[in-house]
């Protein structure tokens, strides 16, 4: 695992301070990011995702473990000698330089000739569609344009890996959506490995080839958006990505008993377990089909309706049903709920 991997973290740990005041930002992270991959580090704020990114950039030195770039150990190499560039959350554009000078900064520092710099700046500005703004100063640009300058500046030196530290968090929703598509396009066009840090699960699901979910300095699960969404390894991942119904129960031979007498046909487990079911996996039918339930709440959301259902025996679940013409169940109605056993995840306790 070296040649085909852009970045490999081997047992990386980062501890701030010593003794009683010590704070572990990264536990013992091992991860292998493939070449040309759009990899997202996803987690709530303070989970260590930015610290890991800064270790890869070189701004932080891990207290233990090693970081490999294309198979080469770069753990102690300073940032200005790593072929890795960062798009900062605050953009950190040089306010005294024009857009073109900002974009050309890295190449200039690398000692490239003026002709080379000009050509690369033109090319990258074209890539982010900012050619008309080459002579402007950052202060004369909108937030979205500044964001693209930051992107162009980091792409211009053609790094092996591009690090993006929550770059879209300062943009409004519409612009953010547009930039998500834009980022994915840039990544495909340049073929550069992108490591993207975000706390926004939707952003992670839309753009990434693979996602690494982090919490409290630990990497919980690495997988494709599909795997992360459909087969979360634990309750945290299931809860963090999308909406999930959790049902506590006792696994028996014929299935999992979630309430006295209510058994879901999920077999092959034993003892107390937690089941995770996505709201869109629940189907509502006439009473008698599947489990008995009563509608406790119905929220119309446009394309679909969210029903909160009280199952016989007490537990509540949320079902998301696509809106359609005709009568829909109303609060107080008795309904039947069927759950596809294949869509139920059994989580480790």
């Amino acid at each position: 695992m070296s040649e085909e991997h852009a970045v490999v973290a081997q047992n990386v740990g980062k501890v701030y301070g010593t003794g009683a005041a010590a704070f572990t930002a990264l536990g013992d992270i091992s991860i292998a990011i493939r070449k040309g991959e759009f990899f997202t580090l996803l987690g709530p704020s303070g989970c260590g995702k930015t610290t890991l990114l800064r270790c890869i950039a070189g701004f932080e030195t891990p207290t233990s473990g090693a970081i490999l770039l294309s198979g080469r150990d770069i753990t102690g190499v300073p940032p200005n000698q790593r072929p890795v560039n960062t798009v900062f959350q605050s953009y950190a554009l040089f306010p005294h330089l024009t857009v073109a000078e900002n974009v050309g900064f890295g190449l200039k520092m690398q000692g490239k000739s003026k002709a080379e710099i000009d050509a690369a700046v033109d090319r990258v500005l074209g890539l982010v569609k900012l050619e008309p703004f080459a002579t402007r100063l950052p202060a004369q640009l909108s937030g979205g344009q500044q964001q693209r300058v930051a992107l162009a500046r980091a792409l211009a030196p053609e790094p092996e890996v591009l690090l993006l530290d929550e770059p879209l968090s300062a943009l409004d929703l519409k612009l953010r959506k547009a930039m998500q598509v834009e980022l994915k396009r840039l990544q495909t066009e340049t073929g550069i490995t992108f490591i993207f840090v975000t706390h926004d699960q939707e952003e992670a699901l839309t753009m990434s080839d693979r996602i690494g979910v982090m919490s409290a300095g630990a990497l919980l699960q690495v997988g494709s958006p599909h795997e992360i969404y459909e087969k979360p390894v634990d309750r945290f991942v299931a809860d963090f990505i999308g909406e999930t119904n959790f049902l506590e129960g006792e696994a028996r031979a014929d299935g999992v008993e979630i309430a006295p007498g209510v058994v879901l046909p999920v077999t092959g487990h034993a003892g107390p377990v937690t089941l995770a079911v996505r709201p869109e996996q629940l189907r509502i039918g006439p009473p008698g089909e599947g489990l008995e339930a009563e509608v406790a709440e119905a929220v119309y959301m446009g394309t679909d309706t969210h029903f909160t259902l009280t199952l016989a025996g007490g537990p509540q679940v949320v079902a998301r049903v696509q809106s359609r013409a005709g009568p829909e169940p109303r609060v107080g109605d008795k309904v039947g709920v069927s759950i596809d056993a294949a869509a139920v995840q059994v989580l480790a306790e």
């Binding site: 701004f59 890795v84 560039n85 960062t86 554009l93 040089f94 900064f105 890295g106 980091a154």
Partner: peptide, 17 residues
């Protein structure tokens, strides 16, 4: 903005530059 120092350092500049 001290982030600019990091940005420079990231973009291959030496401390002197």
């Amino acid at each position: 903005d001290f982030k600019l120092i990091e940005a420079g350092y990231d973009l291959y500049a030496t401390r002197w530059r």
